[in-house]
Amino acid sequence: MLFILQTALELGFLYSLVPLALFISFRILNIADMTTDGCFVLGAAVSVTMAAAGHPFLGIVCAMLSGACAGIVTAFLQTRMGVPSILAGIITNTGLYTVNLMVMGWSSNVSLLKTETLYTIFKKTGIGKSWNEAILSGLIVILVAALVFAFLGTRLGLMIRASGDNIDMVRASSINPAFTITVGLAVANSLTALSGALVGQYQSTTDINSGTGIVVVALACLIIGETCLGKKTILKGVIAAILGSLIYRTIYAIILYTKVIPVQGLKLMTAVVVALAIFAPTFKDWLAFQKQKKTAGKRGQKNA
């Protein structure tokens, strides 16, 4: 049982930066950013390749920068070239497939053997014993989340938030929406790439297909978190992204270890979980409406 919790915490934290990225792009900027899948692999590829070359720390930084570049490309397509936002992300995502192969030296996977990663270095300090991976991931995520929260409170952060809320008002405030969308997508994708970078070094390997479907999973995580916490304030939204990821990975770990469902069935299970997670708020509304219909009818009879 403890083992399940440990895996859930590790993966939950590691992947939680993707829902946090979607919180910025999907919730705040109101853009469904399809760059995510390819950007996640880009982060992993850059980080693992650089770790293999003996630079695990620099690998993380470069992964974030490369992710930001991917975001800027998507934003450029969208704001300067008039490509619809979803298509812009898909185009970048398609291009990234080749870029990712290039980063990994034209190989579809790279593994780290006996090379130092962030995680092997941290393990040597002896902190947290067998929980060291969960602790390191948790610390990084909490730090990043705090930075994101602080950033959204700055003048630039406010400008980005307004761009998704009322674009007319943004123009009237002499802010260029093309600029704010670019910054927003760059930040979001650097977070996605950071997640990929951490996962890559944690698993000591990366694969060209490791990002497939990650945008859907992350969206589900975000919605799970928001259903539990509400999404009224920015603070709640940031926490919800991480909490949602932890919950999702706990469910995932339970299925993996108890084998209630065969491992081959996991993809289907994921799809079901995602669909149910997205359905939850709608179901809640429907339930409330049914209740209202019933009581309204009774109230009506009483009055009659």
């Binding site: 406010l158 938030r161 307004a162 809320d165 009322n166 007319d168 008002m169 943004v170 009237a172």
Partner: peptide
């Protein structure tokens, strides 16, 4: 049209 609804008055 002139204000962002999900942001606070001060923002």
């Amino acid at each position: 049209k002139g204000t962002a609804p999900n942001m606070t008055i001060e923002e």
